[in-house]
Amino acid sequence: MGDPEARDASRTTIAFWQMAVGLCALSLWQGLVALKLLDPFFVSRPTAIAQRIAIWVIDGSLWRHLAATLEESLLGLVLGAAAGISLGFLLGRSPVLARVFDPYIKMLNAVPRVVLAPLFLLWFGLGIWSKVALALTLVFFVMFFNTYQGVRDAERVLIDNVRMLGATERQLVRHVLIPSALTWIFSSLQTSLGFAMVGAVVGEYLGATRGLGYVISQAEGTFDTTGVFAGMTVLGLVVVIVSAGVTRLERWLLRWKG
């Protein structure tokens, strides 16, 4: 682990440089626009974007759209995880079923999700469910493959040991197979969450009445580049904040890994 003081020091140094890189990029952008080397019509400018975000915060529209996007992502994540984990477990435990389903799963996974979006709009309407469905299809496969791996790769010797210690089939699932799958699932939480948000935003972009994707598409429709960049900035910030939370959760859940 090393000296904690040294680690803290390096952490502040990193944070400093992270800020520095961001500020430099923003100043450069602002400067180039001010010097008329870049046209704000095409690329907007950082101060205008910040202003726009501030307006959204004050008039409350930001929260409404953000809430929609987060709700869809979360529902997609939870439902996709539930479906993916269940099927992963089932096929992980039954090699025969796994072989039967293998070509279908590969086929479905090969379908680009954007292609599905209009279909979902048709089936589930403009409301949140078409976005949830899109997020779900993205999360499902990540979760499925990771659970499947986790169950299949549960170390033989752990299973044998627990069985020798008297475990029933159910206890085996509970004490070995689920924890083993969970380690895979947790380590894919970042990816899954990212996919869920991509699914939700793309869904909103293609047809919705609320959400960050909707905001961005509206702005694009009126060549409002400031609005587009403001929407993208909010989305990026949310992802950074959420994934920091997920990292901490993951570290806690997998604390037994030395």
Partner: peptide, 16 residues
């Protein structure tokens, strides 16, 4: 069922 088994490899559950 009359036996326990100490395996050559590590068989402790890492998450417990």
């Amino acid at each position: 069922r009359s036996a326990t088994y100490m395996f050559q490899q590590d068989a402790l559950l890492p998450w417990k």
